[in-house]
Design a binder for these strands. Sequence first.
DNA 1: TTTGCAACTGACTGATTGGTCAGTCAGTAA
DNA 2: TTACTGACTGACCAATCAGTCAGTTGCAAA
Lengths: 179, 179
Amino acid sequence: MDKKQQLITVATQLFVERGFENTPVSLICDTAKVSKGLVFHHFKSKDGLLRAIFEETTKKVADISSIDNINEDPYQQLRNIINSLFVQLEVDKTLFQLNLHLILQPKTRRLLNDLIGQRSSYILNHVKHIYGLIDPENATIRSYMFIAELDGIALNYLTIFEDYPLQEIQQQLIAKYTK
Amino acid sequence: MDKKQQLITVATQLFVERGFENTPVSLICDTAKVSKGLVFHHFKSKDGLLRAIFEETTKKVADISSIDNINEDPYQQLRNIINSLFVQLEVDKTLFQLNLHLILQPKTRRLLNDLIGQRSSYILNHVKHIYGLIDPENATIRSYMFIAELDGIALNYLTIFEDYPLQEIQQQLIAKYTK
DNA sequence: TTTGCAACTGACTGATTGGTCAGTCAGTAA
DNA sequence: TTACTGACTGACCAATCAGTCAGTTGCAAA
């Protein structure tokens, strides 16, 4: 078993359950059945471990918008993004929670600032490109509103409301983004 | 000067800047020029101080949706909510950031769970009531989507994007919710 | 004045933390 | 065999933390 990957897996789970600040390195190592020194050997610091985790999850975010959409109707492209998001929301619920938590926590936000900036501008540009085909004049503002709508749903589903009617909302959205 | 209120003010500011877990009680007291024991005298624990802060901010959230709307057009009521939110977003930017951070941090989320639940169901019911006048059959789902849209905008403005076009988005929203 | 009580202080403690470091061990190339 | 490497260990340390407590102060009621 690869102990480095094991550390990433265990730490991700613990960070989701307890938060980054509230998860001692010793707990990660006990859970992963690995010595404490190994974390610092592989990742240099606790912060380094966090960055490694965040870089891993960045790939999954990219997947949501990077579906090959060449020659597709732009509305279909928007619907693809919506559907991918809803699938990922249910599959990787905890990972999304962790992402939000890391972005909102001032210390981790600072630590991951560059990665977060890259991520968000990547998504913005991707959506802008699609809206360029629909409504070029208002592409920017419509992209911001499209992203806000999806982020708001994710936020409410993951952390605010219990019994969130995710499927119904997905249907409504798909209907809304069908020309 | 009321030292208890002084503690709440200073702690709020520091929690926004550094996060709850990363703000030692000693730092709060040094900044507020107050002895450490006083925190435990007034609030019993660091967690108690946090709850006191969160209860204070709950009032501000309630204000957004509690404008007296009797006899108003339901669309006007929705526009009132939108406008109040945008005003508050700019006036109390840091307070909103703190709220999101506390909700997303697993430990503080658990600590404030009851208050968060009260808050969100209060808002949901308020919006539901308005949509009951517009589209009774879909009042629930449309309320969830209305709230998600606003929450998403707040989230993106406060923590994701720099240079967020808040005014333009407000105009778009107002236009959208004008029957 | 005396009594009583809440506000307030700051030195102190026990527990926990991230990080270090000297050294072990398995594998591999010469 | 020898020399070397990088994964791995766990005892250890300095620093930091939330919370305690014995005592002081200021004020209001009797």
